[in-house]
Nucleic acid binder design. Structure first.
Lengths: 178, 178
DNA sequence: GTTCGTACAGGACGATCGCACAGGTCGATT
DNA sequence: AATCGACCTGTGCGATCGTCCTGTACGAAC
């Protein structure tokens, strides 16, 4: 039942906004009484936090499988862009991620969790870039991660952001010796 | 008095979150009765929308003065990074901007307004890049704008993101012939 | 067969929400 | 002096909020 509550939270946060997810709406979506929420969790915030951090962790975990499909650095950019192509900036996953960024500014526990996930993402990406002879791998990973998040953010406002030219521009970030 | 309400909204949106700004809190911050809100505006959403779009427009307007201080493309990157250095990702302006992005997904009028502002930002930046012989200026401007927004977003979680190395990495986006 | 802990339902608490409406103050107009 | 419109206050409506409290169904333990 905790899983059903978490799934309901993951649906409602993008729909209504973090601070507008109510106990009753959450329970109704999960198909249970509103008392169940406070039986399993001390507060609404705790449900939202767990649901959000769970999704973020899954997103970070996807990085490895994405990078596994790329041989060159430019190829990795293409793979990364292809991976975030599913996130239109208006889909539930994108919105939930951004909502979590914001809620983290008002919830220290959430901030710590998401900061750890971001650090892990950058560390893995930086390690991969270093292995593929990209100069300054860690800062490059940081800029790349920020650019990917920013692109998802902007794609919610301009759906033209997935043109092929974006790939070429973003590939400038990973200069190859050859 | 409308100005006082808008100023109060600009304070409260980052503090509480878009959907958690109430009529009474808004009125109290502005130093008036809660009825004043509905006297000047048809709804709370209308106040938040006007306040948010006003701030976004001011931010876009800053671009020209920033670019005016740069001669080369790499110099422009430095100026842009210096300009967003004031936005820590946890300051009111950053948070208000991100809140507006999110609220736009639930408010078509807001979405149209912010999309127009973003288009203008990219057009101006793209035009400047084109004048300075950067290849593919428009897509470069789009990626650059996304990267800047993403960097602000991530700086809220990792304050190390303003190291000098970021400048060099981001400067790869604007290759010069020489 | 009785006891007991777990997992749920239902209802009620005071607080707060957006919004509407009736009155009141006050400078400008006639 | 009377009138008017702009602007603001106070109050109240019904709805919804988070949380707590009281059952109750039910399988496991003994």
């Amino acid at each position: 039942m905790r899983a059903r509550l978490l799934a309901a939270a993951a649906e409602l946060i993008p729909e209504r906004g973090w601070s507008a997810v109510s106990t009753r709406a959450l329970a109704e979506r999960a198909g249970v009484s509103s008392s169940v929420v406070h039986y399993h969790y001390p507060s609404i915030q705790a449900v939202l936090r767990e649901a959000a951090l769970g999704l973020i962790a899954r997103l970070v975990g996807e990085l490895d499988t994405v990078l596994a499909g790329a041989a060159t650095a430019a190829g990795a950019i293409g793979e990364l862009l292809a991976a975030i192509r599913a996130y239109s900036g208006t889909d539930p996953v994108s919105l939930l991620a951004i909502e979590t960024y914001l809620a983290a500014s008002r919830d220290e526990q959430l901030r710590a969790g998401i900061a750890e996930a971001l650090a892990e993402f950058r560390a893995r990406l930086g390690h991969w870039l270093g292995e593929h002879a990209i100069p300054a791998p860690e800062p490059t990973a940081a800029v790349l991660a920020a650019a990917l998040d920013g692109l998802v953010l902007h794609r919610g406002l301009d759906t033209d952001l997935d043109s092929a030219t974006i790939d070429e521009v973003l590939a400038r970030l990973v200069p190859q010796d050859g």
